[in-house]
Amino acid sequence: MSEVKFSKEHEWITVEGEVATIGITKHATELLGDIVFAELPEKGSNVNKDATAGVVESTKAASDVYTPISGEVVDTNQSIVDDPSKINSDPEGDGWFFKLKIKDPAEMNTLMNRDEYYKFAKENAS
């Protein structure tokens, strides 16, 4: 599996072959607080880089989940719909959101590595 990459919208992404797995970062879950609702994109749908591909809601507010790259949704994690607290407890593992068949691997180059992301997150901390 490839190195984890990160977006400015606080998503993480890993790539295996031509399929990418996407979720939200630990930092994002800490900003959101207790997550109580998750909405996922439809399997088979096509999503474009930086477009809305899901929703998470905490007790406080709703936030969009964006896709860091373009592709076709090939799988979604229904278990986080049934138990959204999984996103808080294991954001970069069991709390994944969806898998994409990658459209353009070059889009991966626009994303940050872990150090860059945490530097970015720290600088943009609210």
Partner: peptide, 12 residues
């Protein structure tokens, strides 16, 4: 304070 360390659900 909107919440403390444990979070809204546990506080509730």
């Amino acid at each position: 304070p909107i919440q403390y360390e444990t979070g809204i659900v546990k506080e509730h």
